[in-house]
Amino acid sequence: MTRFPSAKHLASWTGVCPGHHESAGRAKSTKVRPGNCYLKGALGLAAFGASRIKDTFLQARYRRLTSRRGQMRALVAVEHSILSTVWHMLTQDTRFHDLGGDYYTTHNPERALRRITRQANALGLTVRFEPIEAA
Rank of each mutant, 00 (worst) to 15 (best):
T2Y: 10
R3P: 05
R3W: 11
F4Q: 03
F4D: 02
P5Q: 07
P5K: 11
S6F: 02
S6L: 08
K8S: 10
H9T: 14
L10V: 01
A11R: 01
S12M: 14
S12T: 11
W13M: 06
W13S: 03
T14Q: 01
T14P: 09
G15N: 01
V16A: 00
P18K: 07
E22N: 15
S23C: 09
A27H: 11
S29H: 06
R33G: 10
P34G: 07
P34D: 11
C37Y: 13
C37A: 15
Y38C: 13
L39A: 12
K40E: 03
G41S: 12
A42N: 05
A42E: 06
G44L: 01
A46N: 00
G49W: 04
A50T: 02
R52S: 07
I53Q: 13
I53Y: 04
K54G: 06
K54A: 04
T56R: 00
L58C: 04
Q59F: 01
R61Q: 14
R61V: 09
R61S: 13
R63W: 08
L65R: 05
T66M: 08
T66E: 13
R68V: 11
M72N: 15
R73G: 03
A74T: 04
A77E: 03
A77C: 06
E79Y: 02
L83P: 01
T85E: 15
L90N: 13
T91G: 04
D93F: 12
D93G: 13
T94N: 11
T94W: 07
H97D: 15
H97R: 14
H97L: 09
D102Q: 10
D102E: 15
Y103F: 12
Y103V: 03
Y104Q: 06
T105Y: 10
T105S: 11
E110R: 06
R114C: 10
R115K: 10
R115E: 13
I116H: 14
T117E: 11
A120T: 12
A120R: 15
G124E: 01
L125M: 11
L125Q: 10
T126M: 11
R128L: 13
F129Q: 05
E130T: 15
I132V: 14
I132W: 09
